[in-house]
């Protein structure tokens, strides 16, 4: 982090304020209407009324998970883009989320999660870690835009079909319906158990990624100069790999794949960060929280009855951006 200048500071304050507003909106969104003052008093109430249960056990964990997962996705996107020096890099596009989902699916449907619940985030983490390493193996860490995207597409589709395979072979007849959850992501009906399950690895992952800011700034000048500025490239690589695996891995293990957050958010905030990858990290984290909260509110507003999947909304917002970035980078490739 070079200089948290006035512009970045102002935007951070604004984004944090927005998080509060959206959190309240998120708490007030659901099939049953509850007025705002009831919601706020419900947060502190000890009584076992159905309103309190709805707020404390259903909506609050959902809002908290939006915040945690949004932070992980926004930050991971910015960190990956900074590290690979490629604005198209995103956990969803390069296959990290897909492999995290595969890991979580294997662990969950094999019944391991019923034995030890921590197995679920561990599965997600392992999947994410394998994908990052696989990507490095397939494309190399400083390869061109196209190679990384191609490798990512290959990993994503492999992970997607393996996920579907595992779900089809799962002994439970509901498993096949749940392909939608894993591939499109949702935060519906999650509970505090999920919050507890992922909070520590997620915070550690986020912490690790936030420490890479200065190194990512240095990498702006290429690997040799970054190294000559005193940064250990191997250490940066492993910090990123472990950080992404922790953050994205555990996030996906409870929410399924929520795509494009890591793509859109850093892209929108880059001008505010004056293109510095370091300062973009905390900004993207805040931005990711906002986008995920907003998308999860939208999901509940637009769909009556059975909910739209969250990933559909983020993909609808995100894919035009992706196309725009592809067109923009096409001129670079030629």
């Amino acid at each position: 982090m070079i200089k948290f200048d006035r512009k970045a500071l102002l935007w951070s304050v604004l984004l944090i304020f927005l998080i509060f507003v959206l959190s309240l909106l998120s708490l007030s969104q659901g099939p049953t209407f509850l007025p705002l003052d009831t919601i706020i008093s419900s947060l502190y109430s000890q009584a076992n009324t159905s309103t309190n249960i709805i707020i404390q056990e259903i909506r609050l964990p959902r809002t908290l998970l939006s915040i945690m997962i949004g932070a992980a996705l926004g930050l991971s996107g910015a960190a990956l883009q900074g590290y690979l020096r490629n604005p198209l890099a995103e956990p969803g596009i390069i296959g990290v989320s897909g492999c995290a989902a595969l890991g979580a699916v294997i662990v969950f449907y094999s019944g391991l999660t019923s034995i030890i619940s921590i197995a679920l985030p561990l599965g997600g983490m392992a999947g994410a870690a394998i994908s990052v390493l696989l990507l490095g193996l397939l494309a190399g860490y400083k390869s061109s835009v196209m190679t990384i995207i191609l490798a990512g597409v290959a990993i994503t589709s492999l992970a997607g079909s393996l996920t579907s395979l595992v779900l089809s072979l799962a002994p439970n007849p509901f498993a096949t319906f749940e392909i939608f959850f894993w591939l499109l992501g949702s935060l519906a009906d999650r509970s505090f158990e999920h919050v507890k399950l992922i909070v520590f690895p997620l915070v550690i992952g986020i912490g690790l990624l936030l420490t890479t800011g200065r190194a990512l700034d240095a990498l702006t000048l290429g690997e040799d100069v970054a190294s000559s500025l005193g940064f250990n490239l191997q250490r940066i690589k492993w910090t990123i790999v472990i950080g992404i695996s922790l953050a994205v891995g555990v996030a996906v293990s409870v929410s399924g794949i929520i795509g494009f957050v890591g793509l859109v958010v850093p892209h929108l905030l880059r001008p505010i960060a004056d293109f510095r990858p370091g300062i973009l990290l905390p900004l993207s984290m805040l931005g990711g929280i906002n986008l995920t909260l907003a998308a999860d509110i939208l999901v509940r507003v637009v769909s009556q009855g059975p909910e739209l999947k969250l990933g559909i909304v983020t993909a609808l917002i995100g894919s035009p951006f992706f196309l725009y970035l592809v067109i923009k980078s096409r001129s670079k490739l030629q």
């Binding site: 070079i2 702006t220 000048l221 290429g222 510095r276």
Partner: peptide, 13 residues
């Protein structure tokens, strides 16, 4: 420079 930083920010690196 992989990102279009300002001159000042780049020198600051």
């Amino acid at each position: 420079s992989e990102w279009p930083l300002t001159v000042e920010n780049l020198v600051a690196l």
